[in-house]
Structure formats: C-alpha cells, structure tokens
Simulated scan of single mutants.
Amino acid sequence: MVPVSVLILGQCPEENNLLKSYLSDSSWHSYAVTDAFDIDEGLHHISEIHFDVILLDLSVKGGFTLSELNRLQNNHPEIPVVAITDGVDEATAREVLQHGAQDYLERSTIHSQMLDRVIAFSMERIQYKNRLRKKEKQLITITQNNRDGMVIVDEHNHIHFINPAAEAMLYPLTSDQHFPWALKNRSTFTKTIQKDAAQQILEIHATPIEWEDKIMRLVTLRDVTATTQAENLKKETDDLKKLKDMAAGIAHEFSQPLQVLTGTLEIMEQAGHQPERIAKCRLMSERIVSLVNALRDITHIRMRDYLDYQIMDIRASSEKPLNLQ
C-alpha cells in the first residue's frame, strides 16, 4: 500500500511530534510525514513533494492563524487541510470551514483512529471537490468557446449569464442586460436582426433550468443565416430546374406542329390561296415561334434575376416576330 503523504504545519516541535506519534500508531494506513515550522517552508516542501493532506495547527501552541489557511488555499486548493484547534465552538468551526479547511479537530480529543478517519474523509471530499472543479473548468471552456449563444434569463427577461457568442450576436440589443424578446409560451422560434448592414437569422430555443436556486430559462441562439440562405438557394435552384424542364417540354411540343404549319403556309402561298388569311396565320405562327425561342432560352439561364427578366421578355415576345430555325 502506498503511504499517505502528510505535511504537518506547526510552530511547536512537541505538538508536531505528538501528531506524528498518532499517525505512526495507525492500524489503518501507513503515513509518510513531513513537518514544517513556518508557511514558507511548508510551501517549499509542497513544491517538491506531493502531499495528500495537510495538518495545520491553529492552536495557540501551533502558532498559525486563518491567514495562513487562506494562503494555503490560494496556492494549493487541491490539497485538503485539516485544522487543529484548542477548542471548537460553532462559530470557530464555521469560520475554519469557510476559509477552506476540509475538517477540524480539537487537540484534546485527538487519537489515532479519529485522525485516520478525518484524514480519509478529507481526502475523499477534496477528490470529489477537485473533480467538480475540473468539470466546472471544462464546462466554462465549452461555454466560452461555443459558437452557439447561451443566455440564462429570469421570468422578467433579466440576463443572469451570457456567453461571448451570445454577446456578439445580440449586442447592442442586450446593452441594458435584458433579453430582447419575450419567451413566455415559446420554446423555439426564429428572429431576423440587422447586423453590420446585413441581415442575420437566429434560431432561438428556450428551456427551463434551475439557476441560483430559481427556475429560469436557458436560451440557446444559433446563427442559421448561411443554412437558411443555402436552403433558399436550393429551393430556387430546384424550382428553376422544374421551370426549365417544363419550358423545354413545351418548346418541344410546339416545334413539330409549327414546322408543319409553316410548311403548309408556304404551300398555300405558292398556290395563291386566300393571301390575307395566310398573312394572318403567318403573323400568328411567328408570334408562337418567338415564344418557343424564348422558352428555349429559359433552359440556358442560371440566375433567378435573369429568370424574372426572361419571363417579362416572353410576355413581350409577340411584338418581336422571329424566324423559326
């Protein structure tokens, strides 16, 4: 079994040795003990040795105070500290724990088994606390670097948390620390806002969350501008393809009858039959030819703006007769 590494911080050698004797008498664990008589010496040991627990003597004989406890916590919050005190009342116990100690022991009540239990429980608690601290850092990293916006708002739409992505999306709409849109009875919706002379489309989702002991709403914001534009472009492309296919089909269906009609009119002209009626038929056939040619042109267009122009051109094509090719 790997020994538990213990640092004893106390200014009284006799009291330090007494703690060492309690540890050496343990039947549960083996301990590797180092002691130091001032805080700087203790921090130096910590820089060179991994310690599982620190016993900090806050008694009159021990000579240390809560300021040293604060210094240990500020420099090495990952190491559990057990405070040794002369006497423990409720106020003292609360103060010691509030300053970061994992536990405390009254000097007059210490014995080997008690010291074993307190050290073991303190190590377990700090390990759990360290895991929570690590997960908290990971969560903060994820939140701060997430491309989606995250906002937590209360029932009055007051913002209690906002990540950088949401700030960038919503500024200056949130300059007064209020979410700009009502969330009641809405879970998912979209909003179009103006950003830097361009429109931005936001997909917004709100879900209840417990925050600061209250039920609030976690609002996620995603910039779907590019996605929406791509979907719209795909729809227009699909619609254009359908229109081009339809135009090609209509042009094809008209072409063969027009060829027959044109040939028939030429024969009738050569025979000299009803010249006025033939002229009218020729005019109508030329108008149909121009429409067919315009429909054929549609099959080559690529841009929606040009499509609108081409449709207008079809409407006017009857005034510009074209020869059938």
Rank of each mutant, 00 (worst) to 15 (best):
Q200C: 15
Q200N: 03
W211N: 04
D213W: 14
L291I: 15
L291E: 11
T225P: 04
A230S: 01
I301L: 05
R277P: 01
Q229P: 02
P257G: 06
L283V: 04
R277A: 14
D308A: 13
I215N: 11
S290W: 07
K244V: 06
R302G: 03
I204E: 03
T225D: 00
K235Y: 10
V292C: 07
K242N: 03
A271P: 01
P208Q: 12
G272E: 11
P208A: 06
S255D: 09
L218C: 10
L233V: 09
E286H: 13
E253L: 13
D238Y: 05
D196E: 15
A247W: 07
K242A: 07
Q270N: 06
Q256C: 01
L307Q: 05
V219Y: 03
A247I: 12
T264W: 06
E212K: 11
K214V: 01
E276N: 09
I250K: 08
Q229R: 12
E276K: 05
M268I: 09
T262A: 01
T225C: 00
A197N: 08
L240P: 11
G272M: 08
K280N: 11
D223V: 06
D239S: 15
I278S: 15
S285Q: 00
M246C: 14
K241P: 01
T264M: 06
G249S: 02
L202S: 07
I278G: 04
T299R: 14
V289L: 02
I201S: 08
A248R: 04
T207V: 12
H273R: 09
K234Q: 15
I215K: 07
L265R: 10
D223E: 14
A279S: 15
D297W: 02
L233S: 10
Q259V: 06
L295K: 04
E266N: 05
D196H: 15
S290Q: 00
T228R: 09
I301W: 00
A230P: 02
A197M: 09
Y306K: 00
M246F: 14
T299E: 14
L233A: 12
I201Y: 10
Q199I: 05
L291F: 14
W211F: 11
R277K: 15
M303W: 03
A197C: 08
L265Y: 04
Q194R: 04
T227E: 12
E210H: 03
L295M: 09
R296W: 10
G249R: 00
E210A: 01
I193H: 00
M303K: 10
L283K: 08
I204N: 03
M268N: 02
L283M: 03
Q199Y: 09
A230V: 01
R282H: 12
L295T: 07
E286G: 11
E269F: 09
M303E: 12
L218F: 05
G249Y: 01
T237R: 13
R222W: 05
K235P: 04
K235V: 11
D238Q: 14
I301V: 06
K242P: 01
F254S: 04
G249K: 00
